[in-house]
Design a protein around this nucleic acid. Structure first.
Lengths: 110, 110
DNA sequence: AAGAAATTTCGAAGAATGTCGAAATAGGGC
DNA sequence: GCCCTATTTCGACATTCTTCGAAATTTCTT
């Protein structure tokens, strides 16, 4: 059930705070970002941040590495690529639309 | 805040049942799929399915069209592309990894 | 207009989330 | 060993999900 895994990761990203964290990490690249820096940028309590980080880590989208007293978070790119791949393959997109698709209609809300 | 919108859509996809629904719709293409057919495939109560469909529709990822007594659901491809675009741009991936990324490490769990 | 078919809306109940402060842990430096 | 910094863990509480049956709605058919 690859779908279960994908759902867990999508759910993890489906929270404004966690998506913000993830974006910060992706943009930081291989260097990674100390938890403390993320906290400064987001301005949220450490306990809340820690909770969200744990959730991201648990799904395999993010990894952590200790450097002295600071914990550095990093995007796990293969995981991200796998997720995007799932959405593109299992669910298509990438230009090769599924059989019968005729360049769809627009719609924006929420 | 494009991020808010993306988070809402990711959250919508971050549920196994809804991701299954979405996958069925994407694979069906422009034809779309009647709610009843989705119910048969998933084998869940109509009220539950209706609830999940509403959620997907509310985020703009899915649209509905009436055909007599049946309601046909369809993927809103532009929305999907926008979401994938957000993940690829705001968060990169597509080969053009962010500054400093050196082809990452592996990691799978959860 | 009556009846049947396809879905949605309406509660309700239990499970899972999101947040936050206080207290506990891990690592380094003196 | 003690203190300081960086984070996590531990409740706790309010909010939002998830599910489902029963009843209401919409539309077509006769």
């Amino acid at each position: 059930m690859m779908l279960e895994q994908a759902a867990r990761q999508l759910e993890a990203l489906g929270n404004p705070t966690r998506l913000s964290i993830y974006r910060i990490l992706v943009r930081a690249g291989a260097e990674g970002v100390p938890v403390g820096h993320i906290q400064e940028k987001l301005g949220i309590p450490a306990s809340t941040l820690s909770h969200h980080c744990k959730r991201l880590i648990h799904t395999g989208l993010v990894s952590q590495e200790r450097h002295g007293t600071t914990l550095i978070c990093r995007t796990v790119y293969p995981a991200m690529e796998a997720l995007l791949g799932f959405l593109s393959d299992e669910c298509c997109v990438d230009g090769s639309l599924p059989p019968g698709v005729a360049m769809p209609q627009t719609l924006q809300d929420a």
